[in-house]
Design a protein around this nucleic acid. Structure first.
Lengths: 197, 197
DNA sequence: CCAAGAAGAGCACGACCGTGCGGAAAGCAC
DNA sequence: GTGCTTTCCGCACGGTCGTGCTCTTCTTGG
């Protein structure tokens, strides 16, 4: 890895941190340069426009998600264990300082057409589709009822994550975690093969 | 109502629209003045700072929520009917162009301390507490199990609203509504007095 | 209808934004 | 170690931001 790639990666690390807290618009070139201890133009040279920077921040964040959430989950046994692991890791990922950067970016760009929005839609769709896919393998394993709707489950589970995100970050409610886990258990209970208890 | 109040209200109407789409930061004085057909300084005179403008936008949006959601819901018979009405109206409110302005503002300000954030926390807490309160009257009416946790229900229901918000606005998924209603029915089913079926 | 006061326009300010250029300094291949 | 290439800085630009001043125009109470 040449010098260029090295500093670019370091800058992107900082940039994702900022994007978590302030979003992709709050991410300004001047302040980012300051944090990275580079001159504004020095930093700018690595990305040829602000939009390109935002796109690379998204790509970098996506890689982080894959490393911290997706891949470890997929290394867990198929079915319910994998789904649980996915949920747990996702919660951890969203509990990093600033929260999930995709959540912040989503509300920022849901009404701003352009390349950033398109990229964001793709990433979010992939992330959410992953829930549905993992759920379907759970059906195939016989853990979940085979008349259960995987897309319904994905939307429900993402709702649990999102409300916990808001409760935790805006309302500072320390019981948010516990309630989110309770809600997830209820979702699982509703789709289990042989509902007991 | 004097002339001042009149134009200020008109400006705030436009401002809430903008805040729905672009958030409270995307809301810029110059562009707002343009839309309101006022000079920048003419508009600025009504609010003595940008922060004051943002606070008044929040207050205006809250009034809108009360008129469109809270009050009509409270005019509906207590218990499950009222809770259903609350959910339906909330969904309509969030389906207005740009979506619920509080959702946009929440992710923007969850990491920006200050008066705006504090006001936002108060408003959001009130809105969500309303769910719990309506739910509790449903328990008192005998519609819901009296061992059901109202705060848990509130967080769950808000999650349904939030995930629908994302699916609808970012992902353009037209089945989001249907799934949200299905999820709400499932929530109701789980807390009903005598679980049947 | 007239005067006091409010509402709004015009203009300017310092700060920061994203962006570009030219030169210095560092990294790197041979 | 020399020479080319990449990396980075200094500086400047046009534009927009929030804010404040002064001055004109309108509204409104008596």
């Amino acid at each position: 890895m040449g010098k260029g790639e090295e500093t670019r990666a370091a800058v992107l690390d900082r940039a994702v941190d900022v994007a978590r807290r302030l979003g992709l618009n709050g991410l300004t070139i001047g302040s980012l340069a300051e944090q990275a201890e580079l001159s504004k133009s020095g930093l700018f040279g690595h990305f040829r426009s602000k939009e390109a920077l935002q796109l690379q921040v998204l790509a970098h964040a996506r890689t982080g998600f894959e490393v911290a959430v997706a891949r470890p989950a997929l290394r867990t046994p198929r079915g319910e264990p994998r789904l649980r692991k996915l949920f747990d890791l996702w919660m951890d990922w969203d509990a990093l300082p600033g929260g999930c950067p995709f959540v912040a970016a989503s509300t920022e760009f849901d009404d701003r057409p352009g390349a950033v929005r398109e990229r964001l839609v793709r990433d979010q769709r992939d992330m959410i589709d992953m829930i549905a896919t993992v759920f379907r393998t759970g059906v195939a394993e016989g853990h979940f009822r085979d008349d259960a709707d995987a897309d319904q489950f994905a939307q429900d589970m993402y709702g649990v994550i999102l409300s916990r995100h808001h409760y935790l970050r805006l309302l500072d409610d320390e019981r948010a975690d516990q309630r989110a886990r309770h809600a997830f258990e209820a979702l699982l209970h509703a789709v289990r093969r042989i509902p007991s208890d």
